[in-house]
Amino acid sequence: MTRLATGRRRCLACGAEQAIDDNEPVWPAGWRCPACAHVVAESAGIAALAPELADTVSGMDPSSFKLLAEVEDEHFWFVARNELLAGLAARFFPDARQFLEVGCGNGAVLRAIALSRSWRRLVGSELHPSGLAFARTRLPDVEFVQMDARHIPASAAFDLIGAFDVIEHIADDERVLGEIRRALVTGGGVIIAVPQHPWLWSRADEIAYHERRYRRGELEEKLQRSGFEVLFSTSYASLLLPMMIASRLRGRGTQTNEQVEREFTLDPRINGLFMAILRAEVRLTLAGLRWPAGGSRVVVGRAI
């Protein structure tokens, strides 16, 4: 069991910290620092901690959120992955009650996490307000914040943090992991998902503004350097890897943006078949099976 998070928010202007009360947001809109009087910007009723980067092509193209919002509730890859991530949170951190998702996008994973148990605090952060607009419609009672993942102004405020296909978009990924560690209580949990295998690099990675695909063991090493103990590590989408390899090799150097986007709009029969395959993989993973290769890597860690 992790100890209860009784954290502090930090002013991005002067570094001063203030205790967070249970009955207030971690980052209230319009918050004024008691030390330097810096006032946090506000956008559509939420705190904007990095307004200069909002909806810029930074890490990803904000226009992608609309396409993702249209497909991620039904697409096999997203649906099965949500079940895996919520299942790992339940397996390794059943007592966690204060959760932050870094880079929550449209809120699809956050909704799965929200439905998995009763939470004292749920927070979704995202650099781009265009993603938060969709997330807020899905989860009107959740706290959201516009934030740069390289600057998480909180200390020991959460007992579980997730970043799902986020840090591969950021050049200094270890800085993000260090910020996550500071925002967690000692003993708190982290779950990170990233694309895997540099040899799978394709036009799809370029369109997604990826900085890298991770080598096996790379994310684990970075987590350990950032103050985490690795509890579990596995590939995801392993059973469908041969089809992914064939698709990437076939389109390498020739794929257009439109061809990549068509991967999100499958024939319902194919989508249903792939869904069944990945859900079977997820059940085996949650039973403890670790897959050596796959399109993604998912790592579970504990703050030490």
Rank of each mutant, 00 (worst) to 15 (best):
A114Y: 05
D141G: 15
S130I: 00
G188Q: 05
A171R: 15
R182F: 05
F164H: 04
A208L: 13
D159E: 04
S125P: 11
R181F: 11
D173M: 07
R175K: 14
L219G: 10
G189T: 02
L223N: 03
R215L: 09
E101P: 03
G107I: 13
R138A: 08
I113P: 03
R216M: 15
V123H: 01
D141M: 15
F144C: 08
V176F: 11
A96K: 02
D172L: 00
V142D: 05
R150Q: 15
E126F: 08
L115S: 15
V185D: 04
R97I: 04
H151F: 15
A112P: 15
A114Q: 05
D159Y: 01
A108Q: 08
S116T: 09
R136T: 06
D172A: 10
M147R: 09
R182K: 14
Y214G: 08
F158D: 01
A204E: 11
E126P: 10
A112I: 14
Y209A: 11
Q98V: 06
V145Y: 07
F99M: 01
E179H: 08
A163L: 12
A208H: 14
L132W: 03
A133C: 13
S116R: 09
V109R: 07
R150K: 13
G107D: 06
R121F: 00
N106W: 02
P198F: 05
V102L: 09
L110T: 00
F134H: 07
D148K: 14
A133M: 13
R111F: 03
A157K: 02
R203W: 06
S130K: 11
A133H: 14
Y209T: 11
Q196F: 08
D141F: 14
A208C: 12
S155Y: 11
A112L: 11
G189Q: 03
A154F: 03
F144P: 05
R138V: 10
A149G: 04
E168W: 10
L223W: 05
I167E: 09
Q146T: 10
H169V: 06
D172G: 04
D148F: 12
L223S: 02
S116H: 11
E221L: 14
S116P: 12
